[in-house]
Computed example of a mutant assay.
Amino acid sequence: MTTRIGYIGLGNMGAPMALRLLDHIGSLSVLDTNPDAVTPFIEAGARPVSNAAELASVSDIVCVTVLDDAQVRDVVAGPDGLLSTAKPGTVIAVHSTISDTTALDLETQCASHGVEFVDAPVSGGAAGAKKAALAVMVGASDEAFEKIREPFRAFAALVVHAGPVGAGTRMKLARNLLHFVSFTAATEAQRLAEAAGIDITELGKVVRHTDSITGGAGSIMWRDNTSALEPDDSWFPIFSHVRALGEKDLALAMALGDRLDVDLPLATRALAGLGPGLGVGIGDIARTHSMEEQP
């Protein structure tokens, strides 16, 4: 039997994801509070429904991409929510970035109806969805993951089973922590460059170009834990080299900031934390800098 799929939330992210699903499976039931968002799906052959309860009654898997925790709770467990009609064995997959505690709470509510809850936030933005290039981080039981893995490939190039319910959200939060901390670091680098008379639009071109080659921060994320490395570990010389280069360049940037009177708090923190974070301990440059900072 063909798996019946429903989609709630046809906004900037949900619409391209749902379109990919419709193209992939040839049928889809859809729901959005904005009638204009539904129209192109009807024209493409999708089935519109009036509320979440109706959607659940005609779906084996329901994908949810709404704004926040409150909206997720409402469409899943509200008066006319999915659980009011979902049959046992139905999978409810939430792509919204919510709290992991919300995911666990909804898992419990869904389990009381024999329904599988899946937290499946995505990374890659609307552009990634349009290209079917998203990464999906899935928190689910093994059984539920097997049900959703193939349909998710309609809009994703990478589908990762992060662990049980809640794990997908925790992975997304860690990923976005890196994302927005790096944005903050980018603003710090722009302030330094601007103070030094550098065209920051040209700097942006350089950053995007080189990150597309090196992989940016992801290029160091190969280890399976964050504990300190033993000297005979194969990663030790590699990350020691990274530490040496990083400490040298951070110290030079901080010296430039001192001369230009530009405060660089993230650079200061990075100099102290780079080596320990890599698992190879603090390096000579960072150690010397720390001693110089002490009164």
Rank of each mutant, 00 (worst) to 15 (best):
S141H: 11
E143R: 09
G204R: 02
I61M: 02
R269K: 12
T85W: 05
G204N: 07
A46E: 03
A111M: 04
A267S: 14
R191V: 07
L158W: 10
R259G: 05
A167M: 04
G125P: 07
L256G: 00
S212N: 14
Y7K: 10
P88E: 10
R208H: 12
L134P: 07
G277C: 00
D199M: 10
I213D: 11
K248L: 12
F145V: 02
P164N: 04
L229K: 06
A157H: 14
L106N: 06
A167K: 10
L264I: 08
E150V: 14
D261C: 08
G216Y: 11
T101G: 04
P237H: 03
L158G: 08
E143V: 12
K130W: 07
V206R: 02
A77I: 06
E247V: 02
L22W: 07
A70H: 12
V138C: 13
A18E: 00
R259L: 11
A144C: 05
E116T: 11
V138D: 03
A135H: 04
L158D: 14
A196K: 02
A270S: 15
K87Q: 15
H179S: 14
S141V: 04
A157K: 15
V76S: 05
P48T: 03
I8K: 05
T226F: 05
G128F: 08
R153H: 14
G26W: 08
S123V: 10
L245Y: 10
A157M: 13
V91L: 08
V38S: 04
P151D: 05
D68E: 13
P16N: 12
F239Y: 14
T2K: 15
S99K: 05
S227E: 13
T268P: 01
K248R: 15
I220V: 15
E230M: 00
I98V: 13
D119M: 03
T169F: 05
I61P: 00
L245K: 06
F183N: 10
A70W: 08
S112E: 15
G277E: 00
K131V: 12
A46D: 09
E143C: 05
I92P: 03
L250C: 10
V118I: 11
V122A: 05
V138W: 01
